[in-house]
């Protein structure tokens, strides 16, 4: 269970734009173990998706990626395009967030499902068809045989998202990257899809990276959580550690922003200020302009990751022995 499947080391991603270099991902280190669910949370623009797309090598040509991303002992960033396309869809697959635009409107669902299966598993068309029907059945698309000859616009949003998940599962990958797979769906369908993913993970022992900004989803599904802010990892730990012993002020702020049924009196908190401009990120810790505990050191030097025991790590100057002590329990629950 604890054998690392994917190790990201010192990943940096920049985009060349008219206005200058946008630093989307800065020195990210993460590990995903076999068969575990790692949730990556953070606001839009915090670099969650870009991190994944960087090592999947799916970014536009203006992206500059450096660092080391080992999957199963192979550095993905060093592979040729041909070798990489053998891994994409076969070993690592992705489920994207927008089911309305993620499927090709002029090809039938069958064509789109079969092509990956035939390519990676070496099946012929009839066998691929059988596999596609099997997959659609598994993700709960009714009448799969008939559905295969239809086009994406004949499917509802929820059904399309199921198709996207089926596409992700098609070749029994060892890792699925699910980029906000439920954001575009309404709540009941969201729950169904998540339940489905949980079940599939159990059956196939697939590792999942779940990108989301919904902490409720995280609590229900994840084994471990990485909190990202301003292109960096702010804190990483088990679900228990993140929800019950959070150490980074940004994590506190995120947790304060969850509505809770058991505390009526408290006003729902939002995080003050706005996410950093990645074109000119603030010096030092990216969170310091919005941090209630910022110290002068935060404005000049980016904090290192501090190991807090049991693989719980946070990047914050408050972890420094000289820093003032802040009680996280109080911070999370304060009004």
């Amino acid at each position: 269970m604890n054998k690392p499947l994917l190790t990201i080391e010192g990943l940096e991603t920049q985009f060349k734009t008219y206005a200058g270099m946008v630093q989307a991902v800065r020195n990210v280190n993460l590990t995903v173990n076999e068969g575990e669910v790692l949730a990556v949370v953070g606001e839009s623009g915090s670099g969650k998706s870009v991190t994944m797309m960087s090592f999947m090598r799916l970014l536009a040509k203006n992206a500059v990626v450096s660092g080391k991303v080992e999957f199963n002992g192979v550095d993905l960033l060093k592979l040729s395009n041909k070798e990489m396309s053998k891994i994409r869809g076969r070993e690592i697959s992705m489920v994207f967030q927008d089911p309305m635009t993620g499927l090709n409107p002029v090809l039938t669902i069958g064509t789109q499902m079969r092509e990956g299966i035939m390519l990676h598993l070496g099946l012929n068309k009839a066998e691929a068809n059988k596999r596609a029907i099997e997959l659609l059945n598994k993700v709960g698309v009714p009448e799969p045989a008939r559905r295969l000859s239809q086009y994406p616009h004949e499917f509802s949003g929820g059904m399309r998202q199921r198709v996207m998940i089926a596409l992700g599962l098609a070749c029994n990958p060892r890792l699925i990257i699910a980029d906000e797979p439920t954001t575009a769906l309404d709540v009941t369908i969201q729950a169904q899809i998540l339940e489905l993913m949980k079940q599939l993970k159990k059956e196939m022992n697939t590792a999942i990276i779940l990108i989301t900004h919904n902490l409720g989803v995280v609590a229900g599904m994840a084994d471990r959580v990485a909190v990202m802010y301003g292109g960096r990892v702010a804190e990483v730990g088990t679900v228990h550690q993140i929800f019950h012993q959070p150490r980074h002020p940004y994590t506190w702020a995120l947790l304060r922003a969850i509505p809770r049924l058991d505390e009526h009196k408290r006003r729902l908190e939002s995080i003050t200020g706005s996410p950093p401009n990645m074109l000119k990120p603030p010096g030092g810790c990216p969170f310091h302009p919005r941090c209630a505990h910022a110290m002068s050191v935060c404005t000049s030097e980016a904090p290192e990751m501090t190991e807090l025991g049991n693989n719980h790590r946070a990047a914050c100057w408050l972890m420094h022995p000289d820093a003032p002590k802040v009680d996280f329990n109080q911070e999370v629950t304060k009004a």
């Binding site: 799916l58 396309s85 994207f96 409107p105 789109q112 390519l119």
Partner: peptide
């Protein structure tokens, strides 16, 4: 959908 196709390893 082009990104989806690439992600499938096409």
């Amino acid at each position: 959908y082009v990104r989806t196709a690439r992600a499938k390893g096409i």
